[in-house]
């Protein structure tokens, strides 16, 4: 999986491929947000482009503390050689073009964030154990 610190904004990012009901896939660079309890939030135009199907509505609390309506869409996410169906939230503000990946998307992985050297690594738990044992 490609994960890195973006030199432009010094924020951790991950590269993902998303797919909706259309055949077309789209590669996105998502902000890795440890404060996002869900799987993925996608800008409205990305959801339109891939033809994602709406599956639900809910409520979410945003950065400013305000509670709003959460529009939920089924999206297939491909990373690390696997395909996972996730229930993604829609980012309603058309000005926001940055997808946001939450902690639930990376449940099988352990995230190592090296702020000193600006490195983000997502490693499977079993691989991390192997590495730790060697050391």
């Amino acid at each position: 999986m490609i994960s890195f610190f973006d030199a432009q904004d010094s924020k951790p990012k991950v590269v993902l491929t998303v797919k909706g009901t259309r055949r077309k896939t789209k590669e996105i660079i998502a902000l890795f947000d440890t404060g996002h309890t869900g799987s993925l939030s996608l800008p409205i135009f990305d959801l339109i482009e891939i033809g994602a199907k709406m599956t639900g509505v809910g409520r979410a609390q945003y950065a400013d503390g305000r509670v709003g309506t959460d529009y939920i869409f089924s999206v297939k996410v491909m990373f690390d050689g696997t395909e996972k169906e996730v229930e993604a939230s829609m980012i309603q503000n058309p000005q926001v073009t940055q997808p946001i990946a939450g902690v639930a998307l990376f449940a099988p992985f352990v995230a190592l964030i090296d702020f000193k050297n600006k490195k983000l690594s997502l490693i499977k738990e079993e691989d991390l154990k192997k590495t730790t044992k060697k050391d």
């Binding site: 947000d33 509505v57 809910g58 609390q61 305000r66």
Partner: peptide, 24 residues
């Protein structure tokens, strides 16, 4: 179309708010 909710505290998205996009 379902109503979907986190049990207990509702879903939190810390890096974004609709009126003040922090990650544009």
């Amino acid at each position: 179309i379902f109503f979907v909710r986190r049990i207990g505290e509702i879903e939190r998205i810390a890096s974004y708010s609709p009126d003040n996009p922090l990650v544009t």
